[in-house]
Design a binder for these strands. Structure first.
Length: 608
DNA sequence: AAAAAAT
């Protein structure tokens, strides 16, 4: 509690009120320091509330009663950044006497573990999700996923009131995209390996794909002119109705690689606009491991489906179920979903599965591993779900460990095709990778040093735990570096705001846990800093893939602590030397170089 | 061990 940086407030709460940011930043930041010197949690809570009130809301202080200890402090804390985030619904809930439970940590980590353990238990999302909490709010559940409901079948956790803002609906915003980098042409030289029986030949241009007019128009509006390697191979494969496992960096056009042929097929099948109905029957289901990622895929789908009668819908947790249901009822041809909400909605019979012709698993290795595998198995054995011979199953990821490929067999037809896109021009050689040996204790200092020297360049800082994400973000704010943070214990609203503030450039630094490691496509991320190295090399590959996208050059700096990171040293050397050798091979031989080391692919088809 | 995913 006595450490100055445990201020805890706002850890990058994106500086709350957007309009009010500007020069207030410093002032608020300072108030963070002051708060730490106040005594017990009660008075701190009050100080905070007053502060929040000072900035914005007149009635904030009324909320600092005991009932609110956990959340009051935290909310107020955000008030310190100029915004108290209690919305009307939540206020009502309090007035009616119920205990409001913050979805995120009381003080969100940094101060979450101080003197009031109880408030922490209530405060953490983990309280009901049961990541690691002994105090469970409301229910005694020990894993987030229902091992069944409690006796009454009633859920007693916090009420989710968040409804995400509607996506932009003017044409310009829908088709907004960013420029490809100077290395984009290098994509032409990438080696691609296809294995499996009778693969259809690759195509070289969009024209060859023979897509329908509306799609062609949308592709042009989206600014796509050249096919990326994944697209050259995947599009004809999907058009031919084959199952596919594709190993390629996200951001190399992977999303379009499966959306375009699926949409084309759906158009040619003559899908008619779906009407408002209680139960919808989507033709395509796309799943991804994080909420932000599935949202991104949805936005792409909406882009390509523009002007057609195909309606994509996105649903994910942390938002009102009612909102998801309403979105679906208005018509749903392509359903983009995270696993939990998807199974929930299926259970509520809001969607029927028998018309599903396409099932797409993005970041498939993640979708099939221990965490999500069981859910995915449940999905394909749901009543109504067509068996694997009666649907097309497509899997994409930058990495495909062997054991995952074995698991994938349950989902794919045995004669599925495997496409591996080489890494030249992909993340590895467009990303300049640096490893810094740094002791655990000098990491923070080093981080500040780096961030100050690259001021205002967009940077993602990856840490190992949610708590640490809060901690580091708070610390950086105190160092006057505009920082925001994203991790699974933040409210969905906060997560989306953080991402938005990072995307828009308001906060050039984003501190993140692995939630942001995969798939997120953010323009102009110049740097990735691995404050903590991940536990697996695959995770490393995904993380550094957040920079150097779309032919742009990026830099990845990793802090290597010989005490904790020795396990990853060996695979790391392999990744680094591969990237290095390929770069040399490319620059000396240019196109068509022969691969110096046998395998340059992140994964190989294990059936061989 | 951590993170993620419904309420």
């Amino acid at each position: 509690r006595n450490q100055p940086m445990r201020g805890g407030f706002g850890t990058g709460r994106s500086f709350g009120n957007r309009a009010a940011l500007g020069n207030k930043f410093e002032e608020r930041n300072n108030s963070g320091f002051q708060r730490d010197s106040t005594g017990d949690s009660q008075s701190r809570s009050r100080t905070l509330s007053r502060r929040g009130a000072g900035f914005q809301e007149g009635n904030c202080s009324e909320r600092s009663g005991t009932q609110r200890r956990g959340t009051g402090g935290f909310r107020g804390g955000r008030g310190g950044f100029g915004q108290s985030h209690i919305n009307e619904n939540e206020q009502q809930e309090q007035q009616s006497g119920s205990i409001f439970i913050s979805r995120r940590g009381g003080f969100g980590g940094p101060t979450g573990d101080n003197d009031n353990n109880k408030s922490r238990g209530f405060g953490r999302q983990g309280g009901y999700r049961g990541y690691n909490e002994e105090v469970i709010a409301g229910s005694g559940r020990s894993s987030w996923k229902s091992d069944g409901e409690n006796e009454d079948g009633d859920y007693q956790g916090p009420k989710v009131t968040y409804v995400p803002p509607p996506p932009p609906d003017n044409e310009e915003a829908i088709f907004a995209h960013y420029q490809t980098g100077i290395n984009f042409d290098k994509y032409d030289t990438i080696l691609v390996e296809v294995s499996g029986l009778d693969p259809p030949p690759a195509i070289l241009t969009f024209e060859e794909a023979n897509l329908c007019q509306t799609l062609i128009k949308n592709i042009a509006k989206a600014g796509y002119s050249k096919l990326t390697p994944v697209q050259k191979y995947s599009i004809p494969i999907i058009l031919a109705g084959r199952d596919l496992m594709a190993c390629a960096q996200t951001g190399s056009g992977k999303t379009a690689a499966f959306l375009l042929p699926i949409l084309d097929h759906m158009m040619k099948d003559g899908i008619t606009a779906s009407h408002f109905r209680e139960q919808q029957e989507p033709e395509c289901i796309i799943v991804a491991p994080t909420r932000e990622l599935i949202n991104q895929i949805f936005l792409e789908a909406r882009k390509f489906a523009y002007g057609t009668c195909i309606r994509p819908v996105v649903i994910y947790g942390g938002t009102q179920t009612g909102h998801s249901i309403r979105q679906i009822m208005q018509g749903c041809n392509i359903l983009c979903a995270t696993p939990g909400r998807l199974m929930d909605i299926i259970g509520k019979e809001k969607i029927g599965l028998h018309k599903v012709r396409y099932l797409v698993l993005d970041e498939a290795d993640r979708m099939l591993d221990m965490g999500f595998g069981p859910e995915m198995k449940k999905l394909i054995s749901c009543p109504g779900m067509p068996s694997k011979d009666r649907r097309q199953t497509l899997m994409f990821s930058a990495t495909f460990p062997e054991e995952i490929q074995r698991l994938a067999g349950e989902f794919l037809k045995p004669e599925y095709l495997f496409v591996a896109v080489g890494q030249v021009g992909g993340a590895c050689s467009d990303v300049q990778q640096t490893i810094l040996q740094v002791s655990q204790y000098s990491k923070r200092e080093k981080l500040v040093e780096i961030l100050q020297s690259i001021r205002d360049e967009r940077t993602m800082v990856f840490v190992e735990t949610k708590k640490k994400a809060d901690f580091i973000a708070t610390f950086l704010c105190q160092e006057k570096i505009a920082t925001t943070s994203i991790h699974g214990d933040r409210e969905q609203r906060e997560r989306e705001e953080a991402l938005w503030d990072f995307r828009s450039g308001k906060c050039p630094v984003l501190v993140a846990t692995s939630v942001a490691a995969r798939g997120l496509d953010i323009e102009n991320v110049q740097h990735v800093i691995n404050f903590d190295l991940p536990s697996t090399i695959d995770e490393y590959v995904h993380r550094i893939g957040r920079t150097g996208r779309c032919g742009n050059i990026g830099k990845a700096i990793s802090f290597f602590d010989s005490v904790s990171d020795s396990h990853i040293a060996q695979p790391l050397v392999k990744v680094l030397s591969d990237a290095w050798l390929e770069e040399i091979a490319f620059s000396t031989h240019g196109m068509g170089f022969s691969n110096p080391r046998g395998n340059i692919f992140a994964s190989v088809d294990t059936r061989k």
